[in-house]
Each structure stands twice: as structure tokens, then as C-alpha cells.
């Protein structure tokens, strides 16, 4: 039995006007860390809400730990943990009160599954009398994760836990998820940050309600059809412009200090490109082969 199964799941808002989720199908195995990756408005939150039985699908079906999200919503609710996007605890309750409250609501006690949250809670303990609203961004997240874990859920749904969070806290958060994975909890997480994809076992890329692909990050990357080159010059804006106007260029995207470029002719000589760029008046040119990233793959699929 799969932990999560989606079968042609669809969601339409406002009398057929906006298709938020368009016939999405994928499976998540037990103990897997699955990432749903896509920008805002891709339909991630709608999928999460349907899986946590908070929204009714308009088409297709889905099941969580073998239970149907429509018929068995009561059973599912007691077996899954859910952390909605943004901060969603009570800011006027203390850290401890929030935890105790959610423990009670889920029919358990803090002590019962303490081993699950121990590593995270230790960091929160010095602030346990502090109002949740006064915690730092990273701490809030940790508390929210504790609250979602308190009843030892079979599946943990985390909707954009790292949105708007600085890179340091993001990294810490993913460390926590890695540890949780070792406790055999299935985790489904969504994020708009492409660089987080590599931290998942398998990912689904999603855009405008359509699931573009589902696979392991390594497979998705190796399936990138062309050879990519990282190109750099002293004047980056000029380089990007020149590349866009260059006949041989198939795709051309800025990636940090480099531009990721692919060419129509896969056998193109690096020298040819280099001398062309020099002719166009660019200096300090650096050109080398580079493996694709998930973001390259996403852009590739979007432009198709």
C-alpha cells in the first residue's frame, strides 16, 4: 500500500473558471520524502488541502494510507499531520500552551511521542514560556513542525514551510526533515525554491495546475536533453543580450554569476563560441560544460 495515491485529481474554482489542479496523478511510497515543486499559484496548496480532506476534489480520486480523502475524511484527519503555509499557530499562546493544545486536540500527550520531537523541541525549550507570536521566524517553524508531529502522524504534509524564510533557517529546516525521515514518517512537502529539490527522494514539478514530471532529482537532471554550458563575462547583461541574439543558441538563462546556455548543435566547438563572443566585444569570457540543475529542467519544461 502506498502512503499517498493521487489519481487524476482535479480542482476547479468558481464555476469552471480557474483550473487550480488539472488531473494530477502520482504516488508516494511509505517512508519517502516527496517534494512538490512549483511557483505560487501552481496548485500546490490545493493539492495539499485535498489530501488533508479540507477540500473536496472536483474530479479524480486520492487516498492517504489507503483511506479515501472524501469518504474516510475522519479517519484520515486523525492519522495525518498538516502544517499549512505561513505561520499558523496561536501567537497569543505560549510555546508550551500551543504544544499542549495540539496534543490534546489530537488525543495524545506531549510525553507520549516526545522522542519524535525531542531534537527539535530541545531548541525550543528555553523559550517555552514565550508567546509564539514573539518567536523568531526559524523558531516559529520549529514549533509548527512539533505541533504537526505531536500525534505521530503516518504522513506529514508540509505546505511551503520555507517560503519567505532566510537561507540559513531553510537549511536547518531541511536538516530536521532528514532526521524525521529516519523515524519512518512519510513526508510530503511543497516549495517554490528549486534548489530544495535535491534534498527530496522524489519530486514532482508543477506549474499552473499541471504536473510536469515526477521522478528522482537525479533522473530528472540526467534526462535533460542538451549539453549545458556555464558562460561568464565581465559584463553580464551584455553577455545575456549577445547570447539571445546568437543564432546558434537554443536556450540562455541567467544562473547566478553564470548564464546557462545550450546550443542547437550539440557538437559545437567551445572555441567557436568563445571567439564569437569576443568578436561581439565581450571580455573576461569563461565557458565550460556544466550539469543541469532542477531549475534548468523546470525552465526547459515550461518553455516546451
Amino acid at each position: 500500500m502506498k502512503a499517498v495515491t493521487l489519481n487524476g485529481l482535479s480542482k476547479v474554482y468558481g464555476k469552471g473558471k480557474a483550473i487550480a489542479v488539472n488531473k494530477v496523478s502520482f504516488e508516494v511510497s511509505n517512508g519517502e520524502l516527496f517534494g512538490l515543486i512549483g511557483p505560487d499559484g501552481a496548485g500546490k496548496t490545493s493539492i495539499f488541502r485535498m489530501l488533508t480532506t479540507l477540500l473536496l476534489p472536483d474530479g479524480g480520486s486520492a487516498s492517504v494510507i489507503g483511506l479515501d480523502v472524501v469518504k474516510d475524511h475522519k479517519k484520515i484527519r486523525s492519522r495525518v499531520g498538516y502544517m499549512p503555509g505561513r505561520f499558523s499557530l496561536y501567537p497569543d499562546l505560549t510555546v508550551e500552551e500551543n504544544l499542549t493544545f495540539f496534543a490534546t486536540i489530537f488525543n495524545t500527550r506531549l510525553a507520549e511521542n516526545y522522542h519524535l520531537i525531542k531534537d527539535i523541541y530541545i531548541q525550543l525549550e528555553p523559550f517555552k514560556k514565550r508567546m509564539a507570536g514573539k518567536l523568531s521566524g526559524g523558531m516559529k517553524q520549529k514549533l509548527a513542525l512539533c505541533c504537526a508531529l505531536i500525534h505521530k502522524p503516518a504522513v506529514l504534509f508540509l505546505d511551503e514551510p520555507t517560503t519567505g524564510v532566510d537561507p540559513v533557517s531553510r537549511r536547518e529546516f531541511w536538516e530536521m526533515l532528514k532526521q524525521l525521515k529516519q523515524q519512518a514518517i512519510t513526508i510530503v512537502v511543497s516549495t517554490p525554491y528549486m534548489d530544495e529539490a535535491n534534498l527530496c527522494d522524489r519530486i514532482g514539478l508543477i506549474q499552473s495546475g499541471d504536473l510536469l514530471t515526477v521522478d528522482t532529482p537525479a533522473n530528472i537532471i540526467s534526462a535533460y536533453p542538451e549539453q549545458l554550458y556555464a558562460v561568464k563575462a565581465d559584463n553580464m547583461p551584455a553577455l545575456l543580450k549577445t547570447l539571445s541574439a546568437y543564432d546558434e543558441v537554443l536556450s540562455n538563462n541567467a544562473f547566478g554569476e553564470y548564464a546557462h546556455v545550450s546550443f542547437k548543435d550539440q557538437a559545437i566547438e567551445v572555441n567557436v563560441v568563445q571567439s564569437y563572443l569576443q568578436q561581439q566585444g565581450l571580455s573576461g569570457i569563461e565557458l565550460r560544460r556544466t550539469p543541469a540543475t532542477i531549475e534548468d529542467c523546470f525552465i526547459k519544461r515550461l518553455s516546451n
Partner: peptide, 8 residues
């Protein structure tokens, strides 16, 4: 959302 997603 969390309250609704709880068994309560």
C-alpha cells in the same frame, strides 16, 4: 485549517 484537519 489545522483544527479542521484534526480528528476533533
Amino acid at each position: 485549517e489545522i483544527l479542521l484537519a484534526s480528528p476533533f
